[in-house]
Simulated scan of single mutants.
Amino acid sequence: MRILSKWSKEILLALTALIFLSPIYIIFVNSFKTRQELYENALALPGEFSFQYYTEAMEKMDFVNAFTNSMVVTIVSVVLIVILSSMTAWMLARSGNRISTIIFMTLIATMLIPFQTLMMPLMQLVTGVTRDLGIPLYNSLSGLIFMNIGFNAALSVFLYHGFVKSIPISLEEAATIDGASKFGVFWRIIFPILTPITATVMILNVILIWNDFLLPSLTLVDKELRTIPLSVFYFFGEFTIEWNLAMAGLTLTIIPVVIFYILAQKYIIKGIGEGAVK
Rank of each mutant, 00 (worst) to 15 (best):
R2F: 11
I3T: 11
S5V: 10
K9H: 08
E10K: 15
L12H: 05
I24H: 00
F28V: 14
Q36T: 12
Q36M: 10
N41Y: 03
A42I: 15
P46W: 04
P46G: 04
S50Q: 09
Q52Y: 07
Y53L: 12
M58T: 08
F63R: 00
F63Q: 01
N65G: 13
A66S: 08
T74L: 12
S77C: 09
S77N: 07
V78Q: 03
L80Q: 01
A89C: 12
W90Q: 13
A93D: 07
G96S: 12
I102D: 00
I102R: 07
L112H: 01
L118A: 10
L118M: 14
P121Y: 12
L122W: 02
M123S: 05
Q124S: 14
L125H: 00
G128K: 14
R131F: 06
P136N: 04
L137C: 09
G143S: 10
G150I: 04
G150P: 04
L155A: 13
S156G: 08
V157W: 05
L159W: 03
V164P: 04
V164A: 10
P168G: 09
E172F: 01
E173W: 05
I177P: 06
D178Y: 04
R188G: 10
P192T: 08
T200Q: 08
T200H: 09
M202T: 13
I203L: 15
W210S: 09
L214F: 10
P216S: 10
D222Q: 15
L230C: 06
F233W: 05
G237Q: 06
E242S: 15
L250S: 12
V257E: 01
V257T: 10
F260G: 07
Y261P: 06
K266E: 01
G275K: 01
